[in-house]
Structures are given as C-alpha cells and as structure tokens.
Amino acid sequence: MNRVVLGLRYSGHSFEGWQTQTHGNTVQDTLLNALEAICGERPVIHCAGRTDAGVHARQQVVHFDTSVHRPLSAWVKGVNNHLPGTVVVAGAKYLGEPFHARYAAISRMYRYYFYASPVRDPFKTHMTWMHYPLDLLRMQSAAAMLVGTHDFSSFRAAQCQAKSPVKTLHRVSLVECSDHCYVEIHGNAFLHHMVRNIMGALFEIGMHRQPLAWMQTVLSARDRSQGAKTASAAGLTLWEVEYPPEFGIADLFNPAQLDFNP
C-alpha cells in the first residue's frame, strides 16, 4: 500500500464542513470524488483537523492509503482537474506508515478575520462583520488570559467528542491591519467550536458588554453556559498545521516544487 499525503487549500463558503455527509456537499466528499476519478477507488481519508461549515483552510493536510501508484503530478494536477475552484491540492508526497495527518501533528494555528464598520463590505465575505465598534486593546488583554494549559470546557461545543477539555494555547494575539483585524491562535489541539467560542467572548469584551475580568471568570467556570454566543464561521481559517520537520510537510505548500507543464 502507498500512503499519499496531500496539502489542501479551500474556501469553506460553499461547503457544509469537512466531514462526509449523505448529501455530499462537503470538502471530504468533493475530494473523494476527484480521487476516485484518478485511482478508481474511494480511499479512507484522514485530515489534520475537521473544519465546520463555512470555515476555510489555508493549510489542511490529509493522507490516505491506496494500492494504486501514480506520479505525484497525478495527485496534484490530475486531482485538481476534477475539483471545483473552491478547493485545490497544493502539493503531494509519498510517506511511510509512521505519518498520520492528525496524530503526527505537533500544533495547529487558526486565524479569525473580522472588521468593524457601520455597513457590510461585500468584498470581505471571508471575514466576520461587526456592526459595533470594538475596543481592540481590551480584546488583546482578554486574549492573553487564555495562553497556557487550561480546561477549556467553557469554550467547548456540546457535541465535542474530544477525550479531554484540557488544551495548551501557545499564543493568542490580535493583529490590527489597515481595514480589518485578525486573532491568531496557536495551540497543540482544539475542541469543537473552541476558536469561535473564544471569539464570541472576545467580542463581548471588545464591545464593553462584559468587563475584562469576565474572560477569566468564564475560563474558570468550566461551563459552556457561562460563555458567549458562538461567533460566525465566516472569519475562521485553519491557517497552518505543524509537523516534525523530518516529514517535510511544509514543502506541500511551496509552489516552487511544481512546474508549469500541464
């Protein structure tokens, strides 16, 4: 069997999440259809992290095992010929069984893009629009309270299947750009809706609906009912997945590995 590893990028607007569904309108189902056209079978796909409906991915990593051997160009250009414009295979490589897209990952980084404006901007559909002004300094101070190893039950969706709510966040930083902002969250792993629930709390503090200390109160409560409303999926992107360097996963997203030949 050959273990094929793919680097994916996709816009989540038109998909109902990553995970396969009976209706087939997911990233996984779309990729399976394209793979079947190339290798004549529907392999079992494992991904670095399942994304919800409307969530994007700049660097999603998947792997599957197949008895079929194809040149790497077939797994990139061939598969892309059968994919819609909203999802693309950026690169491919063969790796041995020790590699697993999910379990070999060291950390994951998400970015949540948003902007505050009296009216919606039609050219920022990949971001969350906030109608009210936001106090970014308060949001950054609240975000800093989450760094470290904590029980994140207050930011965990009811349907989360993770064995433990204890996760480690290495960095939570807010970056202000000329016409938008984003919060970058880097951690070892994430619970279901964890980033969106964190953003919901940050928005409450940024709008002065809750005091700054409320973030610590919510975190310590370990109770989802004490938190804020889940923020929109529109602004969330799986930005990067980190692996041990010996796997060379970063190469999957390097355009220099590809040529311009059909």
Results as ranks from 00 to 15, higher is better:
H208S: 15
L202I: 04
C181W: 09
P211G: 11
Y182E: 02
G227E: 02
S225M: 14
H192A: 03
H193G: 02
A221K: 08
M199Q: 13
W214P: 08
A228V: 05
V218Q: 13
G200F: 09
Q226E: 14
G227T: 09
H180S: 12
Q210P: 06
E204D: 13
V195I: 13
N197T: 08
S220K: 10
L191S: 00
F190S: 01
A234T: 04
N197D: 14
G200W: 10
T217K: 09
V218R: 11
S225W: 15
A189F: 00
A221Q: 06
I185V: 15
S232M: 01
M199K: 10
W214L: 05
F190D: 00
N188E: 11
A234F: 07
A233I: 03
F190P: 02
L191I: 02
I198D: 00
K229S: 15
L236G: 08
V195F: 01
M215I: 12
F203V: 08
H193R: 04
E184G: 06
L236Q: 05
M194R: 00
Q210Y: 10
S232F: 04
S225E: 14
G187M: 01
E184Q: 14
G206S: 12
N188G: 10
Q216I: 06
H192D: 00
E184H: 09
Q216Y: 05
A233G: 15
C181V: 09
A189R: 01
T230F: 03
S220R: 13
R209D: 11
G206H: 12
M194Y: 04
E204P: 04
A221N: 13
L219A: 02
H208E: 15
G200T: 12
V218H: 14
T217P: 04
W214C: 08
D223K: 08
G227F: 01
L202D: 01
V195Q: 05
M207Y: 08
N197A: 10
V218D: 09
A231P: 10
S232G: 00
R224V: 04
H180A: 07
A201N: 14
G235Y: 12
H180I: 10
K229H: 14
S220P: 01
F190V: 02
N188Q: 12
A221C: 08
A233W: 11
H192V: 00
S220C: 06
H208G: 15
T217F: 08
Q216S: 09
P211D: 13
H193P: 01
G227N: 10
H193S: 01
R196D: 07
A234H: 14
A231V: 05
R224Q: 05
F190I: 06
L219R: 09
G227R: 07
H208V: 07
T230M: 11
L236F: 12
L236N: 07
I198P: 00
D179T: 13
M194V: 00
P211K: 09
G206W: 10
R224K: 13
H208I: 09
G206D: 07
R224C: 03
M199D: 13
G206L: 02
I185E: 03
A233R: 13
H193V: 00
M207E: 14
T217N: 07
N197E: 04
S232H: 06
A228E: 06
M194I: 03
